[in-house]
C-alpha cells in the first residue's frame, strides 16, 4: 500500500541532517537519524529516516527553510 514503509534523506553533512531533524520536529513530523545504509552511500555519517507518508511534507519543510538534501530514497 502506498504510504507504508520508510523514506531516507541523505545530506552532505550530519550538521544538515541534524538541522532537518529539528525542522521536521517543529512541524510534528516524526523522523530518526540512522547510519547511512551501505547500499545508498559509502559515507560514514547519518541520514534521516521518515515515514514514507511524510516524505512530501518533509521535502516541503526543507525547501521552505532552504535546507538542501542530496538524495531521497524509499526503503524497501
Amino acid at each position: 500500500m502506498a504510504g507504508q514503509g520508510f523514506s531516507v534523506f541523505l545530506f552532505q553533512s550530519s550538521s544538515y541532517a541534524l538541522r532537518a531533524e529539528k525542522l521536521l520536529a517543529q512541524e510534528k513530523i516524526r523522523s530518526k537519524l540512522i547510519p547511512v545504509p551501505r547500499s545508498l552511500s559509502s559515507d560514514c555519517g547519518v541520514c534521516l529516516r521518515t515515514g514514507r507518508a511524510d516524505k512530501k511534507k518533509a521535502i516541503m519543510v526543507m525547501e521552505k527553510n532552504s535546507l538542501r538534501f542530496e538524495q531521497v530514497h524509499d526503503l524497501k
Binding site: S14, S15, A17, C44
Partner: peptide, 22 residues
C-alpha cells in the same frame, strides 16, 4: 564524536553541537 558514526551517542553528540549552533 559527532558526525563520525551513526550510533545513538554520536547522534546525541551531534545534537548538542547543532543545538549550540542554533
Amino acid at each position: 564524536n559527532p558526525g563520525r558514526a551513526g550510533h545513538r551517542l554520536a547522534v546525541e553528540a551531534g545534537r548538542i553541537v547543532y543545538n549550540t549552533r542554533e
